[in-house]
Simulated assay, not measured.
Amino acid sequence: MPTGVALRDAREQLFAAAERVLLRDGPNALTSRAVAAEAGVAKGVVHRHFTDFDAFLADLVTDRAARVAARGDELAARAGAGDVPGNVAAVLAEVFGPVALSVVALTASRDGLRARLRAARPFGVPVLAEAAEVIAGYLAAERDAGRIAADTDVDVLALTLVGAAHLLYAGRDDRPGDAEVRRIAAASLAPALT
């Protein structure tokens, strides 16, 4: 392995390498050696930037979850425009992309990682929890706009949508079509739409 290779943004390059390993080989293949090899750097580079591999994985998961959370303002800005089930279905399709599903699988497969993440956030599965928060924020904005019934518990509805979508996406070799995702969104939202 090369040593002394300059990395512009070591953290992001290592995260990108980890994603490639996750997508190609699954969570069980994700090791510091595999990440270093994928990034084309010495194994010590991972440990130079992170206290241990679980710290690296926790930062990776936290970073990818933050990317989901960052979509909240953009989605809330759609309130009052377009079709509510269509807006939600589009976000679900994006949230449940291959990387996010791999990050959720990674979290589920590593006890040390889960423990570290729980110390920072005592509830929910990273990525899925952020998706529920983003959707709840959007649904609250739609409720304020009068397109969702005033008595709707948007937090529970968001959890329902994320749970249903996760079951639709998880464990498949293919991605569900847009119509399948929209069907789940429309059926879940139907009682709340005005």
Rank of each mutant, 00 (worst) to 15 (best):
L101F: 00
D155F: 07
A140T: 02
R147M: 07
A132T: 00
A185R: 06
G112R: 11
A158M: 00
M1N: 11
A108S: 12
G124T: 13
L159Q: 09
F96D: 03
R114M: 14
R121Q: 09
D111Y: 05
R78A: 13
A129L: 06
F56E: 13
L30T: 02
G44S: 07
L157C: 05
S32D: 15
P122D: 02
L157P: 05
R33D: 14
G112E: 10
D54Q: 08
E12G: 09
L159D: 15
G163Q: 15
V41K: 09
A179H: 14
L60I: 08
D111Q: 06
V162T: 07
G86E: 14
G80P: 10
E19S: 11
A186Y: 06
A69Y: 09
D25N: 04
A120Q: 13
A192F: 04
A39M: 09
G44A: 05
L189Y: 12
Q13P: 00
E12L: 14
D9H: 10
T62E: 15
A145C: 13
R67M: 06
L30D: 01
A42N: 10
V61A: 11
E94Y: 13
A37R: 11
L139H: 01
G26A: 07
I184E: 13
A129E: 01
G171Y: 07
R143D: 01
T194R: 13
L193P: 13
R20W: 02
P2K: 14
L60W: 01
V104F: 01
V88C: 03
S109A: 15
V125I: 05
V162D: 05
G97V: 06
A132D: 07
A39E: 12
A179T: 14
L14D: 06
D25Q: 06
G44Q: 10
S102N: 04
T152N: 02
E142T: 10
R143C: 00
A119R: 15
S188L: 01
V103L: 15
D151T: 04
D25S: 15
A119W: 09
A165L: 09
E180M: 15
V181F: 11
L30K: 07
T62C: 09
Y138K: 04
I135Y: 07
L113K: 10
S188R: 10
V68I: 15
G112D: 11
L128D: 13
T31R: 08
V45N: 09
A79Y: 04
F53R: 09
F50H: 15
V103T: 10
G40C: 03
K43A: 06
D155H: 12
A149L: 14
V21R: 05
A89W: 00
L22S: 00
A34L: 05
V45E: 14
A76K: 09
Y169L: 11
G44W: 01
L113C: 08
V181A: 13
D151N: 05
A81M: 00
R110W: 05
E133K: 00
L193H: 14
L23P: 02
R143I: 02
H166F: 00
A17P: 09
P85T: 12
L60N: 04
F53T: 03
R71C: 04
L75F: 01
V162S: 07
A186M: 05
R114H: 07
D83P: 11
V99T: 14
